[in-house]
Design a protein around this nucleic acid. Structure first.
Lengths: 246, 246
DNA sequence: CGTAGTATTGAAACGGATCAATATCTGTGG
DNA sequence: CCACAGATATTGATCCGTTTCAATACTACG
């Protein structure tokens, strides 16, 4: 389109250039994720990153395939999962805009990445990225913060998995989605773009258990499901309580 | 002791200087962790790291305390855990020599770190480390590799947690301990310095379940417990099979 | 050598997994 | 635009293994 370049110039915070969100190494106060990259760094990254629009349900890379690229999510949601011999498909993470993925492997990818929704991703060839990071210490530090942040996330996730009660897990998940999407303020409707199966894989439950948990959340008047992908929060306090009961 | 300094000079690979082990970003072949730091880098780190001997069961930092230092394990084993309102105490990770910890938080620590055995740790003030990394891109890259590696570990752990069968979990854990300790070759005896409670916290099981799992492993002739902290492997194949059955 | 924390063992109950049958949705082609 | 097929989700009944509670044994440390 003829306006593309202008738009890109006009809005440096657009999703046209890669960005990272995370918690700085030394930020003393807030635990709120902030923009990690300077405008300059974002443009440097843009120089080595290829922007790709990807339809939903697209596999970006497969477990065991030789690792060639690292990705940053621009828009949409990506899931990372593994295929286990027993047929289970644990979801290791859902990735949201400004998250990195593919970095977490070496030589070969150790998991499969697939878009959950239509998405925009930035693809950075591993070799180029390595050279860039070996040269730009500031940038490397930001990547370190980001991966560190994602390690924290992974550990929080691990704790959620350990819970035995399905409703509690579900409540936690809904809350996290809410936070992630609205970046702060609530509008009472939580978007859940992934399938029940995906959620089950993420929470370490069976599909049926997820279904029942949703049902029970409805029956107890905590939320209503507008459709399978949107929940309206009726009793925020109850939701919070369920989520942190553990 | 009067020979201390000489010893340090004589053996650059001793545990007197910090080291990191992990999988390089670009190493194509082996998935075996290798030494990440050059001798020069190890000495640079030594300049900013304080070496501390720590008796077993010592708390290194507490959840919610202001974060001041990042640590590298020199010798021994450290565990990182959280205290949950319901009284549970999930163990997020056991850390072995050349692992980093404390890096995974910002502003305040989000978990508690405690030595499992007598240990040697290298303490690096966060501010100093930040400045060093902002300046030395190569070193920063190694840290990135290491944290990335630990993220992989965390995700592998998450998958282990999801398993429902206690014996399988226990088998996985024993194998991992074996690999971690012997760095390759087996001598048939697995050291398990941590308590049953620690193991339970790590595997997301009750103490009783761990106890029973060990019992069943014995009864089925897979291992024998010499004492509570040492297991002799009787049937390696069976152990492997149990571990990867999932 | 005793005491407190740690571990084993048993019995009962809870909760999710699994199997099975049905319902709903999505996207495709007529 | 509708109908159909395959995937996705709901709901019910049963089973199984872990949790929990409780009582006892062990072990490490002062």
């Amino acid at each position: 389109m003829r306006h593309d370049v202008d738009i890109r110039r006009a809005d440096p915070h657009s999703h046209e250039i890669p960005a990272l969100r995370g918690i700085p190494l030394l930020d003393t106060d807030s635990n709120q994720p902030v923009r990690l990259l300077s405008t300059r760094q974002r443009h440097d990254l843009a120089a080595i990153a290829v922007r790709e629009r990807v339809p939903r349900r697209t596999i970006l890379y497969r477990e065991h395939a030789p690792a060639t690229s690292v990705f940053i999510v621009g828009q949409g949601i990506v899931k990372v999962f593994r295929d286990l011999p027993n047929g289970k498909r644990p979801v290791l993470a859902f990735l949201f805009p400004e998250d990195i993925f593919g970095l977490i492997e070496a030589g070969h990818y150790v998991s499969t990445a697939q878009t959950v929704t239509d998405a925009v991703v930035f693809r950075m060839p591993l070799v180029v990225l390595r050279d860039t990071l070996a040269f730009d210490a500031e940038l490397g530090l930001q990547f370190l913060c980001k991966v560190t942040h994602q390690l924290r996330e992974s550990q929080r996730h691990r704790i959620a998995i350990e819970r035995r009660d399905a409703v509690g897990k579900m409540a936690t998940f809904l809350r996290r989605l809410d936070q992630r999407h609205t970046h702060g303020e609530r509008h009472g409707v939580i978007h859940m773009p992934m399938t029940r199966s995906d959620v089950a894989g993420y929470l370490g439950l069976s599909l049926e258990a997820v279904s029942r948990a949703c049902r029970r959340l409805e029956r107890s008047g905590v939320v209503t499901f507008i459709d399978r992908h949107r929940a309206r929060v009726l009793d925020q306090r109850a939701l919070d309580k369920l989520a942190s009961a553990y």
